[in-house]
C-alpha cells in the first residue's frame, strides 16, 4: 500500500503498540491471557436482506462458515451478516448479491458503520453474562449460535464462534457505541483478568 493511502480507524482506541494491518490502524499488542478481547472492527461486515427462509441456507439464529471461510450469521428473520477478512467488501458484496433472488433483497457494506469485537477464553461466557441477559449455557447458545440482544444496554449482534474449540463470542454494534461496549466488556472481564489482544489478519 502506498505511503499516502488513507488509514481506516476503528472507533475503539488501539492499545499500544499501534500497527497498520490491511489499511487499518490496529493494536499490535499480543496477549496469551486466559480471557482476551480483540477489536475486530477491520473485518468486512455486510448486511444482507432477503426473503425469509434462507438465502444462504442458514436460518435466523445460526452462523456457519462458507467454503471460503466467510462467517455467515442469520442475524434476523430475512437478515444475514457476513464477516470476511479486511478489504474484501467488494468481492463479498458481489457474491452476496448473486446469492439473492433476482430483484429481491439488498446488500449493505456496514464495515465502517459498525464496531466489532471478540472476547475469547474459558471465562468468556461468565464475563459476557455480567452484561447480557441471554442464556449463554452451551445447550442454549452452542458454537454457531447467533442472536441480537442488549449487551451492556447496547443493541448488539452476538455470534458464538469458538476458535480452536476455545470459547469465543464475536459481537458488533453501532460504531458510535464501540468504545463504550469495549470498555464495558473490559470492565465485565476485569475479575477474570481480561487483557487486550490486538487484531491480526485475516481475523475471521
Amino acid at each position: 500500500m502506498a505511503e499516502s493511502a488513507a488509514v481506516a480507524r476503528s472507533p475503539i482506541a488501539p492499545t499500544p503498540p499501534v500497527a497498520i494491518e490491511n489499511g487499518w490502524e490496529v493494536s499490535a499488542r499480543r496477549s496469551a491471557a486466559d480471557l482476551r478481547i480483540t477489536d475486530c472492527t477491520p473485518l468486512t461486515k455486510l448486511l444482507v436482506l432477503g426473503p425469509e427462509g434462507g438465502v444462504f441456507g442458514i436460518p435466523f439464529g445460526r452462523a456457519e462458515r462458507d467454503e471460503e471461510g466467510v462467517l455467515v450469521a442469520g442475524s434476523g428473520p430475512g437478515e444475514w451478516t457476513l464477516f470476511g477478512p479486511p478489504g474484501t467488501g467488494e468481492g463479498l458484496a458481489g457474491r452476496a448479491a448473486a446469492a439473492l433472488p433476482p430483484d429481491e433483497g439488498a446488500v449493505f457494506d456496514l464495515t465502517h458503520g459498525r464496531a466489532a469485537m471478540r472476547i475469547t477464553g474459558p471465562a468468556a461466557a461468565a464475563a459476557l453474562a455480567r452484561v447480557c441477559a441471554v442464556d449463554l449455557a452451551g445447550e442454549v447458545s452452542p458454537d454457531g449460535a447467533a442472536f441480537r440482544s442488549s449487551v451492556a444496554k447496547v443493541v448488539t449482534d452476538v455470534v458464538r464462534d469458538d476458535i480452536d474449540s476455545q470459547l469465543s463470542y464475536l459481537m458488533h454494534c453501532d460504531r458510535a457505541f464501540g468504545q463504550y461496549l469495549f470498555d464495558a466488556l473490559l470492565d465485565a472481564g476485569a475479575e477474570f483478568d481480561i487483557e487486550v489482544d490486538g487484531f491480526a489478519g485475516p481475523g475471521i
Partner: peptide, 10 residues
Amino acid sequence: NWFHRAGCRR
C-alpha cells in the same frame, strides 16, 4: 402489539 427493538426488529 410489541416491537422487538433490541432483537429481531419485528
